[in-house]
Design a protein around this nucleic acid. Structure first.
Lengths: 219, 219
DNA sequence: GTATGATTCAAACGTTCGTTTGAATCATGG
DNA sequence: CCATGATTCAAACGAACGTTTGAATCATAC
């Protein structure tokens, strides 16, 4: 038996390659070759390529969503006494995600890139996965933001939550436009600064006055 | 000769299918079948699958970037007298993009989805395209934002610009998390409201105080 | 050592893919 | 009408794909 078992090696290799090439652009032969295992092992251990993707997502996303849920629990418990602040809600949303995949053996970059690129895959492939992993949590975030900003309609809160998701996904995916030019001063390795800036941007965006004249119309 | 010529039919069909399935997940047979043309026509007219993608991008993105460049010209001309406002810079950035692909014959949804999903494709495929189409414009937006917010470092401006890009991409891609749950009140057809809200969110995010203690350190 | 289930293996299946090829057809000008 | 280049066509090429198959090997318990 190898040092790291076959299943784990497949998961690690697939994670990296799915992140770079997407689901359709990743062949199982590329994965098994990178994992140094036999092609049939994928079917033996996972049943299908699609199930492999699902399992990769789950193994990475479940821990961060558990952490988010814990943080939400604490915020919700205190919300009975006083409304939550946008800052703490944003922290609960962002912090688990920006640490995604970091560990002693890995800097988590591929994991985060994969989590981000899921949003670009064909809808029928990933919407069930997204709904399953994030549906409940997003409802809870939206509800808490509603407590923090009661003058906004549910619809406007949902929009703003979505904008925050867009920022986060772009940041964790490290897909940048401006640093493609030679004069860019953006240092992608300064993650702390980027996270701090992102948090400030999102908090301030969320704290904007209502953009809708009839913002309370939808409730 | 058909009503619409072969080349145009291929471009239209490919645009739609690339947007749904991504580059690797799109077969030329799917495209040619949808366009009701012969498979070899793709190679005859475009040379390769990749060149087809490039041409699709260019035909859609070039007009919006021309419009953006025109708006930038106007803002830059006035910037000699007084600093530009964040609002007008954001409008110059967003408005051409949210109208992307809208015309008498098409609601532009597929076009926008494709423009958005380009960011998820393998880097070596799309970075040259992105650099070519957006490199110069992003430099100009960053420079103008620097004029509007001189207390921020170039690096922090670039980060914020990137966050704005993330929001825009998510919105034009119509990839939502919260509306996947049955109780969502987000109406994706109310584009005007969504754009208005997005603009407010971005403007307020960009107007946040410096997140970096040494924000002017990079200049 | 033997039996049994788990795991890995190499080969194959049937399908699909982007690209190429040479012939057929079309469009246009002289 | 003929010549010529443009365009479309059907077939094929060589490669790649996810999945399946049955045999071989491994691991473990008795």
């Amino acid at each position: 038996m190898r040092e790291k078992d076959t299943k784990e090696r497949i998961l690690d290799a697939a994670e990296r390659i799915f992140a770079e090439r997407g689901f359709a652009g990743t062949s199982l032969r590329a994965v098994t070759s990178a994992a140094d295992v036999n092609l049939a092992a994928v079917h033996y251990h996972f049943g299908s390529k699609e199930a492999l993707l699902q399992e990769i997502l789950h193994r990475r996303v479940a821990p961060i969503n558990q952490e988010r849920a814990k943080r939400l629990d604490r915020i919700e418990a205190r919300a009975a006494e006083e409304p939550p602040s946008v800052e703490e809600i944003v922290a609960a949303f962002l912090e688990p995600a920006v640490q995604l995949g970091d560990g002693p053996e890995s800097d988590g970059r591929a994991v985060r890139a994969l989590a981000a690129r899921i949003y670009g895959e064909p809808r029928e492939l990933v919407e069930p996965m997204i709904r399953e992993e994030f549906g409940d949590l997003s409802r809870r975030f939206v509800a808490l933001l509603g407590r923090a900003r009661p003058e906004l309609s549910r619809s406007e809160i949902e929009s703003r939550f979505q904008f925050a998701v867009g920022v986060l996904i772009f940041v964790i995916a490290e897909r940048y436009v401006s640093n493609l030019t030679p004069d860019s001063e953006l240092d992608l390795n300064d993650r702390e600064a980027i996270v701090r800036r992102m948090s400030a941007f999102i908090v301030h965006g969320l704290c904007a006055p209502p953009a809708d004249a009839r913002s309370r119309g939808g409730s």
